[in-house]
Design a protein around this nucleic acid. Structure first.
Lengths: 174, 174
DNA sequence: CCTCTCATGTAAGACGTTACATGATTCA
DNA sequence: TGAATCATGTAACGTCTTACATGAGAGG
């Protein structure tokens, strides 16, 4: 369960509630996460039961009450044990677009080019966003900033590749 | 269910049994798949029930009997419908190593460098394999060969990034 | 008044992984 | 004899996604 350790890691920075955890996991860290409340809220409750976290309710005048979670010494211990263990298996990269692309020999070339163009737009928008966010990340520790850098690199590589793909496919007779 | 369409795609090339499907998904296509029998065999049975595939048992003298699956016209139709639909959501990239790395500010620098060195070895071995397999892919269609190319690119980018990370982390005082 | 953002949660189901169980042949 | 490869499958368990349900305040 990796959401667990992601949460424990985030709580090293500051106390947080579920809503913020999701926000940070998605935008700030890694660039390569999608988490949803269906994972986060149950995980927080469970971890609290396990004694890794403590919770305190905070009433607010301008917004609904939130549940602030803090990491306990037991939680820190569990996190540090995980951090120093050897990372299992490898990278998982799955993309519905890439799966389709693999089989485009059985489809129409024009449609392939359309879908590639869509992807280029998507990655261009994402690259813009990531580039804009880079300065913020540079103020954080080396690791966070390296990760942000990786996100930008990935994005650039994909764009180069997509544009090359466009040309190669267009050049095919068939 | 993406395994479903991956199978339908493969069966456009030739009739296949479950064992071969796994082999091809893992090695030949995409470079970015891990599938296991727990997914494949039930999927094949289910798709047969749905009329997307037909099956015939083939006895062998040198190995156990295998179940050859063929795609039906209904299966081809379902596949082509999927192929031409717009790909949903985006790329999912998850790596236990990258998650750890994000939080290495809370761990020991030496350990971070060790783990990075391990990853470099891993990616170097993978790059070698992928580069060796490239000529085979070039004989296939543009799409398959572009996908193989993407795998190599990804690998190279990761290696560059890991080596830069090594230097930046080593340069930190702390 | 309507939509957006903030905020928390549950239930059902889809999807994936791991472990187990079986068994023949080939090669060292 | 023992390991590797080929071959098929199931059961239990985890994880993840989707949809639903609720509700307050802010701003147009």
């Amino acid at each position: 369960m990796s959401v667990k350790y992601a949460i424990l890691g985030l709580l090293h920075y500051k106390d947080m509630h579920g809503y913020r955890v999701k926000e940070l996991l998605e935008s700030n860290f890694g660039n390569m996460w999608t988490v949803n409340y269906g994972q986060i809220y149950p995980a927080l409750s469970k971890m609290r039961e396990e004694g890794l976290l403590t919770m305190s309710e905070v009433a607010q005048t301008d917004a609904p009450a939130k549940k602030l979670y803090s990491i306990t010494p037991k939680g820190k211990k569990a996190f540090s044990k995980w951090l120093n263990s050897s990372p299992e298996k490898g990278l998982i990269m799955r993309d519905p677009f890439l799966l389709r692309m693999t089989f485009f020999n059985f489809g129409k070339k024009e449609r392939a080019l359309d879908i590639i163009a869509e992807q280029i737009d998507l990655y261009e928008a994402q690259l813009k966003l990531r580039t804009e966010n880079m300065p913020k990340r540079k103020q954080q520790d080396v690791y966070v900033h390296l990760l942000a850098d990786l996100g930008v690199n990935l994005n650039k590589m994909m764009l180069d590749w997509l544009k090359r793909a466009e040309k190669e496919i267009a050049a095919e007779e068939k």
